[in-house]
């Protein structure tokens, strides 16, 4: 090995990795979709009147939040086929991505339930009371007055959670998913583990730029939806 560190490797691998962003995005997008639906249901359970539902939703959230992503991945990847196998179905032919999406949907759902719950609780009850006082039904009051305001409160947290999802999603390579992380691992093992530093740096560059773009996007969204509110500057 002549050079220990060869910058050209860095620039060389980036074009090889970019096509696999598709997989990263697709998996993230589906996880967000299912996770948000799950999170919504869990939030309803947490805010509702049924004690059992509340306890169940809170337990679920705590358990998921205390579980490292790779552990969850492995549990789903090995555990789900085993459980379902007892009923006769063979899940071993399913594409890895399915297990990845299931895992991160479960995780994102837990995150989202907290985001939605705190956003809802942040809206003053007086808004709802005023709405029903002018003759709106509770459902209308919620939909037209409380929800839009809760949405704005939830937006920054949603953005953060989305960013977290993208980063945790990188662990999917451990069960064989070929997204940008997976491809990077393949490249490295193909090169007999030489020049792995450059490749990892290239990978980190892609993630970094991606995260900055996502942050900007959500900042922009917040500005658009906050019309009519005074925003407190913290920077």
């Amino acid at each position: 090995m002549q050079k220990y560190f060869d910058v050209s490797y860095l620039w060389g691998t980036i074009p090889q990795l970019i096509p696999f962003l598709k997989v990263t995005f697709m998996v993230a997008g589906l996880s967000v979709l299912f996770g948000t639906i799950l999170g919504f249901i869990l939030a309803l359970m947490k805010l509702g009147t049924s004690k059992i539902a509340k306890k169940t939703a809170n337990s679920y959230t705590t358990i998921i939040r205390c579980t490292p992503s790779i552990v969850l991945l492995f549990l789903v990847y090995y555990g789900l086929p085993a459980i379902v196998g007892n009923f006769g179905t063979d899940l071993n032919t399913l594409h890895t991505a399915v297990f990845v999406v299931i895992t991160f949907s479960l995780q994102f759902g837990a995150l989202m339930s907290e985001v939605m719950r705190t956003a809802y609780e942040a809206i003053d009850r007086g808004q709802f009371e005023a709405a029903v006082s002018v003759g709106l039904s509770p459902a209308q009051a919620f939909r037209r007055i409380v929800l839009p305001q809760a949405f704005v409160v939830a937006l920054p947290n949603f953005g953060n959670s989305f960013l977290e999802l993208m980063k945790e999603g990188s662990l999917a390579y451990t069960i064989g998913l070929v997204d940008i992380m997976g491809k990077a691992s393949l490249i490295i093992s193909n090169n007999y583990n030489s020049h792995s530093l450059e490749i990892y740096l290239g990978l980190s560059l892609i993630y970094w730029i991606l995260s900055i773009l996502i942050e900007q996007f959500f900042s922009r969204l917040e500005k658009i939806f906050s019309k009519g509110k005074q925003v407190i500057k913290t920077t």
């Binding site: 990188s170 662990l171 995260s211």
Partner: peptide, 22 residues
Amino acid sequence: VSFVRGTPVIVQIFIIFTSVPL
């Protein structure tokens, strides 16, 4: 902060693991 919060931990681990010896 932007770099650390924008990249996955596993990638940071690999970077440190391969760069520190060098």
